[in-house]
Design a binder for these strands. Structure first.
Length: 502
DNA sequence: AAGCGGTTAAGAT
DNA sequence: TTAACCGCTT
């Protein structure tokens, strides 16, 4: 993943930092990396789609980290991946097939009765689905945490936000595990951040300005750096055999011009180079430089950096390697988490009653997209008539799963029955019935065919910083102007107890 | 000296 | 899954 060996190569420029360095700043988060780490603890449940609380532990993980950031007065901005771009199709395909193999191995182990071995395989089989992202997004909405779904690569969106001033929605740093961020020109990236906020930072300007440190980037600029990354091998294009990060750096240092590097490469390695390497290289470079990103200000797609003369002359089809252009309404519906960027269908509707045409926006849809379509409605079954007042309902017949694990958590759930909650505005503020971050108000059926469907009414901030006994100040959120009542003092200890055990 | 395949140890949840 | 290391090859 990312640029081959880049982080190892950049080791001399890595500085250990604590996230509190960014107190009172906005910090972007590559949501995929957290979702993926969080999914480890519930990989089997996710793969088998087992009903129960455990399946949602990845949300738990993400919220812990978000609350840690908030504890340090950092404003988190979560950025989710959107559709796949064509030149990443091969990488995606390889990952998908590996996961499929591991899934089959896991199922075999399960059949044998070797659960431990099965879990190990399931951990290699989990993929992050748009549905999982959507479920986290619903919590983020209710917690008023900023997020955006990128039209394509989250990394590109993060790099864009990194280029903006804070008052224009910009971010001061990015938390990620992916070295691609540097190739996209992100100014400050924090890798390997742990649960306490310790991480390793690379600041790109320090790299360019550093005198006497090796490897030297003194005569590099962003374009040369990105070129070096593409030469070394990235998700969009494998490297020419025999070229790794060190050779790529040496070539770019020596010639200081990517065209010259390419012609030298052709001369030296012409026989081992794919015929279309030159074209592929230019496209990969262009993705890193001019990826399509969502501009929240104009509510349109834009390019990460403006297209140069050559690319400006390209037709729409010729620019499709950046991912197809999207209309303003599509782009903003995706960005705001209402449209599944892979299927272009709404999250809260049945596929059958969704009027959106299924535009193919990507060569390869995400793996396990069937979850995103057929199960995207789970556990929501609500009216699709626009403008109709929605009545939300919790199915009381369904037992709460894993109650023994959630004995404390259960106390968070409001026992009040027959509490009708009409909420026409928030079509999408729907969370799983057993979302451990919510106290739920339950509603009765008033109309239509609604079945199980819970409505967010209140959110607790969760203290999880082990070093600190001070609680993060609880920020109560209100849906539809409904004031949330606080039971936080009586519940805080039980919350603390619960999360100290997790 | 660097790339690259293979192996092994450590880390996370 | 990554990071580090080994040994072989270019």
């Amino acid at each position: 993943m990312g640029i081959k060996d880049l982080l190892r190569f950049m080791k001399p420029y890595v500085e250990p930092i604590h996230i509190k360095k960014y107190a009172h700043k906005r910090v972007g988060i590559d949501a995929y990396s957290w979702l993926h780490k969080g999914a480890y603890s519930c990989s089997m449940e996710l793969c088998l789609n087992t009903e129960g609380d455990k399946k949602y532990q990845y949300i738990n993980y993400c919220m812990h980290r978000i609350n840690m950031l908030r504890h340090h007065n950092i404003t988190p901005v979560l950025v989710f991946d959107g559709g796949n771009i064509p030149c990443k199709a091969l990488t995606e395909q390889q990952r998908h097939s590996k996961r499929k193999d591991n899934r089959e191995l896991a199922m075999a182990k399960l059949k044998e009765g070797d659960t431990n071995a099965a879990i190990e395989m399931f951990q290699r089989a989990v993929s992050i689905t748009p549905l999982m992202a959507h479920q986290l997004i619903q919590i983020l909405r209710s917690e008023n945490i900023e997020f955006v779904v990128a039209p394509y690569e989250a990394d590109a969106q993060l790099a864009y936000l990194s280029s903006l001033d804070a008052d224009k929605g910009g971010i001061a740093a990015v938390i990620s595990e992916d070295s691609d961020l540097l190739a996209y020109g992100c100014s400050s990236v924090i890798f390997k951040m742990d649960r306490y906020g310790n991480g390793e930072e690379i600041v790109i300007d320090k790299v360019f300005d550093s005198v006497g440190r090796l490897p030297s980037f003194l005569h590099f600029d962003k374009e040369l750096f990105t070129g070096m990354c593409v030469l070394a091998g990235c998700d969009f294009l494998p490297s020419v055999p025999g070229i790794g990060i060190a050779k790529a750096h040496a070539l770019v240092s020596k010639y200081r011009n990517l065209d010259r590097v390419l012609s030298v490469l052709k001369y030296d390695k012409g026989d081992q180079m794919p015929k279309d390497y030159f074209t592929s290289f230019r496209e990969a470079l262009a993705v890193f430089q001019h990826a399509r990103i969502y501009d929240a200000d104009s509510k349109r797609l834009k390019h990460l950096t403006p297209l140069g003369e050559t690319l400006l002359n390209y037709s729409d089809e010729e620019l499709d390697f950046l991912g197809p252009e999207l209309s303003s309404s599509q782009a903003s519906a995706i960005a705001e988490g209402q449209l599944d960027p892979c299927t272009m269908m709404g999250f809260n509707e049945f596929p059958s009653c969704n009027g959106q045409p299924k535009k193919s926006i990507a060569v390869n849809n995400r793996s396990m997209k069937q979850e995103a379509t057929t199960e995207g409605c789970f556990p929501i079954v609500s009216s699709s008539k626009p403008g109709t007042k929605k009545i939300t309902v919790v199915d009381r017949t369904k037992p709460e799963p894993s109650l023994e694990r959630l004995s404390n958590l259960k106390q968070l759930i409001s026992p009040s029955n027959n509490d009708i909650h009409v909420n026409p505005a928030k079509r999408s503020s729907v969370v799983p019935n057993n979302n451990p971050f919510k106290r739920k108000k339950e509603s009765t059926v008033l109309n239509e065919c609604a079945t199980e469907h819970s409505e967010v009414t209140e959110v607790e901030d969760l203290e999880m910083t082990p070093n600190s006994q001070k609680s993060v100040e609880s920020k109560k959120k209100v849906t539809s102007g409904k004031k949330a009542e606080s039971k936080s003092e009586s519940n805080k200890n039980t919350i603390l107890n619960f999360f100290s055990r997790v």
